[in-house]
Simulated scan of single mutants.
Amino acid sequence: MRLIFILASVLLITSEAIAQPVTIVAYNAENLFDTEDDPTNPRDDTYLPLAVKDANRPAHDARCEQYNGTTGFYAEECKTLNWDNQTYTTKLKHYADVLSAMPVLPDVVVIPETENKKVLDDLVAQNLTAANYTVVQLDTSDKPDSRGIDVGMLTKLPLAGTPRAHVIDFGNAAKECGKTRDILEVPLQLPDGATLNVFGVHFPSGASPFECRARALKTLSTLAAALPAGSLAVAAGDFNVNCNESPTEGFSRLLQRGNWYVSPLATHGCNAPGSTKYVDRVMDNWNTWSFLDMILVSPELSATRPSEQNWFADLGSFGTVVVHPEQIAVDEDNKGFIEPRRFDPKTGHGVSDHWPVMMRLLQRRS
């Protein structure tokens, strides 16, 4: 019986009876900065060549301490990291290698933690020219608290309108939440001419209260509700909702009120699988996982509701995509525990502290 299910799965993926799926990936790039100093972005001082840093001391060190503290890992990294052109191009190549190793090159890639449009232009020009990706990156999150990074997007699908960025207003929780990355809204044209509205997100980190992520999700839901009735919408990216928060009634109610559907896998708790490791501070246990990265879909894309639209989301296809050795790190004690492999500029190995997640959109009628 088990063999039958496996064969059925293969047939579902390869059958010509299903028109070409649209694949959507969310893949946090983990600090994808270029090598140039942007005077308007004080948080890019870490990601400069060491020669540039040395030529501007002690002013460079003073800026590092202003935004990273006077001591500790981040202050030291800001002062000593050599983010030169070789490091930068290696980082780009490894990220592209993961996308290229996927079963199909994604139609849409939502990419949190990009400094500007240039880094995505370089990613495509140096490694992905054959994919014919259109780059969307509006470079609007310029406040220091946002770390000078934005959500970017690569798309094979044509634009169906003008991309927009939306600021998240935290209201009376602004002091606790600070600033965060803007929500990127990009309307795209599906193969049959229908419009798919893709929201790219990177919500406040786990260092802030859950209320901050809740308010960000409410903003996202408000934007989706403002679309014309019957619209197709997908929200993808780094929601930063950890495995202790995602199974809660509070989060499920936020999804219900926002009319979002999500794979149950993303809210199943702290067991594997997941897109990144989650440290349980109480149990001091690294063998726990979170789906910080999710893909949500609107009601018209749900397979459990009737719809006049021709597309639905295969929620069962949602999951992590681990396809390249540079994605995998083994624990320092070498006991065999694995986690996503951060990019290490000193060794030139690794990609990101997140694994990508993927989901397919299928046509109801071929």
Results as ranks from 00 to 15, higher is better:
Phe170Lys: 01
Arg57Asp: 09
Asp121Trp: 04
Lys117Gly: 13
Asp139Met: 06
Leu157His: 00
Arg215Gly: 00
Leu92Asn: 11
Pro247Asn: 09
Thr347Lys: 08
Val119Ile: 12
Ala165Cys: 02
Ser263Pro: 00
Ser307Leu: 00
Pro299Trp: 01
Leu105Asn: 13
Leu12Thr: 15
Gly178Tyr: 12
Asp145Phe: 09
Leu292Pro: 01
Leu7Pro: 00
Asn242Tyr: 07
Ser317Cys: 07
Val109Lys: 14
Phe251Asp: 06
His60Phe: 12
Leu232Trp: 07
Arg305Asn: 11
Asp142Asn: 10
Asp333Pro: 02
Thr222Ala: 13
Thr129Ser: 12
Tyr95Ser: 09
Leu361Glu: 06
His94Val: 08
Met358Phe: 02
Arg63Glu: 10
Asp139His: 09
Phe5Asn: 03
Thr276Ala: 14
Gly319His: 03
Cys270Ala: 12
Arg215Leu: 15
Asp331His: 05
Val201Gly: 02
Thr320Gly: 08
Trp260Gly: 07
Val234Met: 01
Asp142Phe: 00
Val109Arg: 15
Val109Cys: 09
Trp260Cys: 00
Gln363Trp: 07
Asp293Asn: 11
Thr276Phe: 04
Ala313Tyr: 04
Ile168Tyr: 02
Ser275Tyr: 02
Lys79Ile: 00
Leu255Cys: 12
Asp145Cys: 09
Glu211Lys: 11
Ala19Glu: 15
Asn271Met: 07
Thr71Met: 06
Val262Glu: 15
Thr195Ile: 15
Ser352Phe: 00
Asp84Thr: 01
Thr195Asp: 11
Phe199Tyr: 15
Leu301Gln: 01
Pro356Ser: 03
Ala26Arg: 05
Asn68Ala: 11
Asp139Ala: 10
Phe318Ile: 00
Asp150Thr: 10
Ala329Gln: 12
Thr267His: 07
Ala8Cys: 12
Val110Pro: 03
Asn28Asp: 05
Ala226Phe: 04
Asp344Glu: 13
Cys243Val: 08
Leu223His: 04
Ala224Tyr: 05
